[in-house]
Write a protein that binds this DNA or RNA. Structure first.
Lengths: 145, 145
DNA sequence: AGGTATTGGTTGATTTTGTAACTAACAAGG
DNA sequence: CCTTGTTAGTTACAAAATCAACCAATACCT
């Protein structure tokens, strides 16, 4: 527990991360909200299913580190909008396999393209090396939980 | 709007930022919650007043990019706990100058030391150069809003 | 001065999130 | 089988965030 009298809270990494996360999410958030009326949890579930394909809520939970109630509610809304189907598992009748419908898949591809575009814009002031290092550091920090 | 068919959403910077922000905030959040029963908004107001000294809610709002209702409620709670005093401004009678009390100041210094410590632990797997670059990039991303 | 717009700050209603408790299904051990 | 423990997912309730409306003070404009 060493003291550091020169520490400036404006440099506190969790604080900076939160500021950067909020600022960088804002515009994209408006996009999926405006286009599909989605919340962040819904967008995340959508994109997990888009990337990994058919999977259960539990698997999304493991991979995304979202809380299971958030996922449960997001899945419900996406199912209401016919963006995904729920298919009870034969092996474990508690679990359901979730899978994007054609509409869900289209929304996923649309938002994925928008995200790629947005990401490029966001990072355009940085070099490729800086961006790669940033991603790598963020992944490590995220994995520390 | 150029297409990038190779883009992986797991590399989407806003997503990584959110994951890293959440993971890195978690432990520290528990600390100020346990020690002072504070919410994140309260801790932020506290530390803005600790850093900048006497200032109004509006100034905190500008500097922190928190919503004014969150600040208003955080200020109320901190005032209830006698962590700050509210002093109506002479120049503008709508505004109040906020200032930490001795107790508020002590809490600030305590948490500030804990933050410094936590920050060091968080970044100990990275080089000083990497950490400096990370901070710099986060500041730029945060300022983009 | 008088009218209108803007600003600092608060409040209440609505939405979203987090916490716990719960149901139903499975699993392991005897 | 029967008990105990665990797991997938949902629901109910409490805590918190967001949004719109609001009040009072100030600024702007003529």
């Amino acid at each position: 527990m060493m003291e550091n009298p020169d520490f400036d809270l404006r440099d506190f990494v969790p604080y900076l991360l939160n500021q950067a996360a909020e600022a960088s999410s804002l515009e994209f958030q408006r996009l999926y909200k405006a286009r599909y009326g989605m919340l962040r949890a819904e967008w995340r579930v959508l994109f997990h299913l888009g990337i990994y394909g058919r999977m259960t809520a539990r698997e999304i939970c493991d991979r995304s580190a979202m809380h299971k109630t958030k996922i449960s509610r997001a899945v419900q809304k996406l199912a209401d909008r016919r963006f995904l189907t729920r298919d009870p598992s034969d092996l474990d009748r508690r679990a359901e396999h979730l899978e994007l419908t054609a509409a869900g898949s289209a929304a996923y591809r649309d938002l994925m393209a928008a995200a790629a575009d947005y990401d490029a814009r966001l990072m355009q002031g940085f070099t490729a090396e800086e961006t790669a290092l940033l991603r790598q550091m963020l992944r490590r920090l995220a994995a520390m939980r």
